[in-house]
Design a protein around this nucleic acid. Sequence first.
DNA 1: TTGATACTGTTCCATAAGGCTAAGTATCAT
DNA 2: ATGATACTTAGCCTTATGGAACAGTATCAA
Lengths: 112, 112
Amino acid sequence: MEQYQSQLDGIFQALADPTRRAVVGRLGRGPASVGELAAPFDMALPSFMKHIHMLEGAGLIRTSKAGRVRTCTIEQTRLAAVDGWLSEQRAIWEGRTDRLEQFVTQDKEPKK
Amino acid sequence: MEQYQSQLDGIFQALADPTRRAVVGRLGRGPASVGELAAPFDMALPSFMKHIHMLEGAGLIRTSKAGRVRTCTIEQTRLAAVDGWLSEQRAIWEGRTDRLEQFVTQDKEPKK
DNA sequence: TTGATACTGTTCCATAAGGCTAAGTATCAT
DNA sequence: ATGATACTTAGCCTTATGGAACAGTATCAA
């Protein structure tokens, strides 16, 4: 609950860059290698890798290496934290300040 | 549509700090002066003001001065941009890559 | 008109972010 | 065994962030 805040720091920070948001968007279509992900960007690989590391650090993606290829996968559940924070805000300004704990501490369930 | 991205940069960046998220949370309960907002934080006023400026720059709050007091108000519609981006992501990984324009360019309507 | 209040403006500082190049390692293909 | 591929590591550079102190301005209250 204290670390909820620092997690949000990392998540929002990671999403505050267009390159990283684009990577998240791409990974939404399915896993991809670092090379594939980097291709669309006019940027040296080491620079691009920093973005990958930051996304992984924020928990927004997972990566694993097979041979010389590192494959990245999106971690959808982490975006739920953003969703949770938004719900929290909405709850506040709608006057429903109760039930906040639910948004904050548990992963949001498929809201269908 | 190009500036949609740089707007998101600013919004996510602004939300990537716990002080600023706390201010957003507080303003969700109603307008407040800079002094009131700053009170809970162990921070010099000029430092705190930087956060206010950043939030205003991102369009997340509006401020106006009456006499010597500057009052801040939340701009709920700006958080809708975050909501829109999230919807976009969800649309992508659910395979519905059509209709993206709608999420991107127009304010989301109350999704009741 | 004096003093307190509520910011503002300016400058400084340390660290982090985002980019680069150059060189290194580990696989895979031949 | 060699060369190409796919990252990695290590520095370096510039700008942005988040904090501080200190002095300044504009109100409001007495």
